[in-house]
Write a protein that binds this DNA or RNA. Structure first.
Lengths: 246, 246
DNA sequence: TTTTAAAGGCGAACGCCGTTCGTGTCAAGT
DNA sequence: ACTTGACACGAACGGCGTTCGCCTTTAAAA
């Protein structure tokens, strides 16, 4: 036995068949993970089937055995990201606070993973983790005394608001990435230019804009997100009724 | 005169130099108009430089003399669409009602022009008509007694909400267009499937969803839009202060 | 009227993209 | 040991935005 030890070297014109190490088996999880890696590293616009395949050391065609297409891949990545959000056990006394926390957490997680928020704007998310989120938010509200009809619509509206804001923020990130600048320099540049532009407008046609440049430019992304979120939530609170006897 | 009437036919090997009718001069306006035509007819995903050029009977390279690229074309189309919205003369007594009307009108106009709302999510609109909108909304609020800082952020938040909802709606339109179905059939199909899907979920893990399918599915796009809008506006109203002596 | 220079139309090509086809190869079941 | 079915993957298709370079047209200059 052990012919291998004294084996004659393979002739060089015999192209080595096992290029890396046998055949690495792919799987949907591996594809999704690679996609998420590309997304976090290089952003949404860089997430192409070719790039994901490259990340896995293969060609684009290989992915289609595990994923029906790019759309499905995006939905899978999205659901995976949503899975990172923790849901509290509903407490009727703190329902508003809990709902707010879930919204903020969702915003944070979506913003952390580049532009994936776009996916939830483009689809009605039906992955297991998205359903978990919807169920959790519904439970917090309904157990807090919000009428089911209101709570149902609120899930929709909150999801839209959170995703839209995260998406908008990610687009700035993408531009900054393209520009190659430091994130701070980029932001200063954009806001500086915009402030100068506003101030340069004809004051007779745009008196409000010219007169309130400082207010228009003030506040960062998170501050503005929470401002809008609190508008929505304070509006919602008026609908809440005391819990009926259980 | 009138040699034309009895003119000898041009020899066919003499390739006709004026193919259509001399050279039609292009212009930025013509390009933008053609782009809007494509958008309304075939949707966002069909709006390519090639397609717009085809609409003008030329090649894609010709457009770049009038537009720096696709991004600028989209912004120009967007601003043109925004120009369709009418702004009221601010009336301090009816500021909330006026603001609401502007938001609804904007939503309607954006939704009418397919997916153009996407552009305002991707950019901070700075076209003349977009500025006019911002100025108008600011004026309504500030003259209505809303503190300038709140009004400034509200312009941002309202724009985000309106654009996001219009964008989401347009994505359904795009799918319906792709599927080739009638709009009614498509909607019934989607909502029917979704309702069936929700009802098929395990009731122990998703009791709220399974128990409130009817509420989750109820209401059309406009109804939901106005629900969210009124949440935002009722939250805003709490900030309004009586106008100081003028 | 002729010349000339600037402006702009446009065919062709580059390098991306998502997706499909056909072939090759491995590993598990017989 | 052989068969077979799943799947990896190179190559190619048709689309995209954009650029290059040539050529026509036009309007001002001579």
């Amino acid at each position: 036995m052990d012919h291998e030890a004294s084996a004659v070297p393979v002739p060089p014109w015999r192209t080595p068949r096992k290029t890396t190490e046998a055949r690495r088996p792919l799987s949907q999880d591996l594809v999704v993970e690679a996609g998420l890696r590309v997304l976090d590293a290089d952003g949404f616009e860089a997430l192409s089937m070719r790039r994901v395949a490259q990340e896995l050391g293969t060609g684009p065609a290989s992915l289609y055995a595990h994923v029906t297409g790019k759309d499905e891949l995006l939905e899978l990545i999205y659901d995976r990201v949503i899975g990172e959000i923790e849901l509290p056990e509903p407490d009727p006394d703190r329902w508003l606070e809990q709902l707010r926390q879930v919204a903020v957490d969702t915003f944070t997680v979506l913003a952390a993973h580049s532009d994936i928020a776009k996916v939830s704007l483009a689809n009605i998310p039906t992955g297991p983790n998205s359903l978990r989120m919807a169920e959790g938010a519904l439970a917090i509200m309904i157990k807090g005394g919000v009428p089911p009809q209101i709570a149902s619509w609120m899930v929709d509206r909150l999801g839209l608001y959170v995703a839209a804001d995260a998406y908008e923020g990610s687009l700035h990130l993408a531009r900054q990435r393209t520009s190659g600048q430091d994130i701070g320099d980029y932001m200063d540049g954009i806001f500086g230019q915009l402030a100068v532009f506003y101030r340069s407008l004809p004051a007779d046609r745009f008196p409000m804009i010219v007169g309130h440049v400082d207010e228009l430019m003030s506040g960062g992304g998170v501050e503005r997100f929470e401002f809008g979120l609190d508008l929505l939530l304070s509006g919602l609170a008026r609908f809440a009724r005391p819990i009926p006897e259980v």
